[in-house]
Design a protein around this nucleic acid. Structure first.
Length: 434
DNA sequence: AAGGTGAGTTCATAGCTCGG
DNA sequence: CCGAGCTATGAACTCACCTT
C-alpha cells in the first residue's frame, strides 16, 4: 500500500512516535536495540530510572536517538506514589511528598535548578515540565505549574541547556478534558508559556477507550490547536492511539512497551498501600486482530478451539514469519514492530487522507478479523465474552469515527513535535550500519 | 550460575450514576 | 426505566539486581 504515491507537495509530515522505557524493561530493550528490533528512538526516560538505565540511554544517544526526561514531579507530589518507584529521583524528598514550596524559584530544595543541571549533564534533548495532576482548571497547582515552566526555561538557559526543549504535560482526568469551560481556561493559561510541545496525559483514557470516549477525546484535544503548538497524546496505544493521530487531534503518540497504553491516576491521592501486598501481570501478547493483548494463559486456553491459532496469529510475515510461534517467542519485539508499523503506514499518507486511510485500511481489516475471532466456538464462557466484546467495540468505533470524520473535515490538524536533536537524520535506532 | 528478593504493575467486573 | 459509561476494587506474575 502507498508505494506508488507521488507527493505533489513534498513528503507528508511524519507522525511523532515516542516510547516510554518504563521502570524495569530496559535490559530487554537493550537486547532489542542491539539486534535492530527497537523500531523507535524517541524515548521518555523516568528521572528515577536514569542511573539504572544508563547503558540503554548511552546506546540510544550514540545512535542519534532523542532523549526526553520525565521529572516524575507529578508522582513525587502524590500521596500514593511518592514513596514508590519514583523515590530514587535525584530531587525526591525521602520523607515527604514534594510541595509547591519545593518548586518555587529559589526554593531551598531547588528542584527546578536540579532538574536543569541533570538534563544538561545527562545529554537530554527535551524535558517534561515538572507539572502536577490537576483536579481541574481552578486547581491552585495550575499557577504553580505555569511558574515552574517559566523557571525551568530560565534555569535551562542559565545552566547551558539553551538547546533543550520543554514539553508541557497536561495531566487531568477525562471528565475535566471534556468540559469546554475548563478547556478554555487551560488554553488561556498555557498561551504565553515557554514550552515547545503540549503533551496530554488523560487519567482514565487509553488503548481500551470506549467508542464514545475516543470520539470525545479527539474532539476535546482538537480545541488545543488554538495554541498552535505540536500535540502528543501520552499513554495511548492501539487503534485508539492511531485514530487520534489519523484524525489530526495530535501529531504524535507515546506509550510503553506493551504497557502504559493507558494512564490512570485515580488513586494518586489515596494513602500509600501497605507493603508486602503487590499484584502483577502475567506476560501478555498483542493480538492484532482484537486490538488488545491476551495473556499466555488465555492463549493457551484458546488453542484447543479449532481455527483459533490461525485467527489470532500475526500474519505479517515480515514481523512473525512463523506466525503464532514467533509472537509467543518474543512478544515485545512483535509488539514494537506492530505499533511502529501502524504509525509508519499512516505517516506515509498525506494529512488530508489520513482519517479515511485509517478507517478503510487499518480499522476495517481488524474489524473483519475480530468478527471472525468472535465467531470461534470457544468453550470458556469468559474468554468468549472478551472476544465478542472486542469485535463489538471495533464496530462501534468505526461507526462513531465515520460520523466524526464528516464533522471535522477541513479542521486544522496538530503538528508532530520536531525532532531533537535538530538536523540529525531520523534513522531508526539500532539500524546502525556496521 | 542460580536462586532469592524487592518492587512494579493491568485487567475484569460489580455496582453506581446520569441522561435519554 | 434502562443502558452506557464511569469508579472502585480485587486479583499472583515479571524483571532486574543482588547475594551466595
Amino acid at each position: 500500500m502507498g508505494q506508488n504515491v507521488v507527493y505533489l507537495h513534498g513528503q507528508p509530515e511524519p507522525i511523532g512516535h515516542f516510547l516510554r522505557i518504563g521502570n524495569s524493561g530496559h535490559r530487554q530493550l537493550e537486547t532489542l536495540l542491539d539486534s535492530g528490533k527497537m523500531m523507535l528512538d524517541r524515548v521518555v526516560v523516568d528521572a528515577a530510572a536514569v542511573a539504572r538505565q544508563h547503558d540503554l540511554i548511552a546506546s540510544l544517544a550514540e545512535a542519534g536517538g532523542e532523549l526526553i526526561l520525565d521529572t516524575n514531579v507529578a508522582e513525587l507530589s502524590s500521596a500514593r506514589k511518592y514513596n514508590g518507584a519514583v523515590k530514587s529521583a535525584p530531587w525526591a524528598n525521602p520523607v515527604a511528598m514534594l510541595t509547591a514550596d519545593d518548586l518555587r524559584p529559589n526554593a531551598n530544595r531547588d528542584v527546578i535548578g536540579q532538574i536543569a543541571r541533570f538534563a544538561v549533564q545527562h545529554g537530554f534533548h527535551m524535558v517534561q515540565a515538572p507539572t502536577h495532576l490537576l483536579e481541574g482548571s481552578p486547581d491552585a497547582m495550575f499557577a504553580v505549574d505555569r511558574a515552574s515552566t517559566m523557571a525551568l526555561r530560565n534555569a535551562l538557559d542559565a545552566e547551558g541547556g539553551r538547546h533543550i526543549g520543554i514539553n508541557y504535560p497536561l495531566m487531568i482526568k477525562s471528565a475535566v478534558l471534556r468540559d469546554p469551560v475548563q478547556r478554555r481556561a487551560f488554553i488561556a493559561g498555557l498561551e504565553e508559556l515557554p514550552f515547545d510541545n503540549l503533551w496530554f496525559r488523560i487519567s482514565g483514557f487509553g488503548a481500551d477507550a470506549s467508542p464514545a470516549g475516543l470520539r470525545r477525546y479527539i474532539a476535546a484535544v482538537m480545541d488545543f490547536q488554538r495554541l498552535e503548538r505540536p500535540i502528543v497524546a501520552d499513554g495511548v496505544g492501539g487503534l485508539a492511539g492511531l485514530a487520534i493521530v489519523a484524525f489530526g487531534a495530535a501529531g504524535g503518540i507515546c506509550h510503553g512497551v506493551a504497557e502504559k497504553e493507558r494512564f490512570d491516576a485515580s488513586d494518586w491521592n489515596k494513602p500509600p498501600e501497605p507493603r508486602g501486598q503487590s499484584f502483577g501481570r502475567e506476560k501478555r501478547v498483542l493480538i492484532g486482530s482484537l486490538d488488545r493483548m491476551l495473556s499466555e494463559k488465555q492463549l493457551d486456553a484458546l488453542m484447543s478451539t479449532p481455527g483459533a491459532r490461525k485467527a489470532l496469529s500475526c500474519n505479517d510475515t515480515s514481523c512473525c514469519p512463523r506466525g503464532f510461534d514467533d509472537m509467543l517467542k518474543d512478544p515485545k519485539a512483535h509488539y514494537l514492530r506492530q505499533r511502529s508499523q501502524g504509525v509508519q503506514e499512516l505517516s506515509r499518507i498525506p494529512d488530508s487522507r489520513r482519517a479515511q486511510h485509517y478507517l478503510d485500511k487499518q480499522l476495517t481489516p481488524v474489524e473483519r478479523a475480530a468478527r471472525n475471532v468472535a465467531k470461534l466456538r470457544v468453550g470458556d464462557e469468559g474468554l468468549k465474552k472478551i472476544l465478542e466484546k472486542s469485535s463489538e467495540r471495533l464496530e462501534k468505533i468505526h461507526s462513531v469515527l465515520d460520523d466524526l470524520s464528516g464533522t471535522i473535515k477541513g479542521a486544522p490538524r496538530a503538528h508532530a513535535p520536531s525532532r531533537q536533536p535538530r538536523g540529525k537524520p531520523a534513522a531508526a535506532a539500532g539500524k546502525r550500519n556496521p
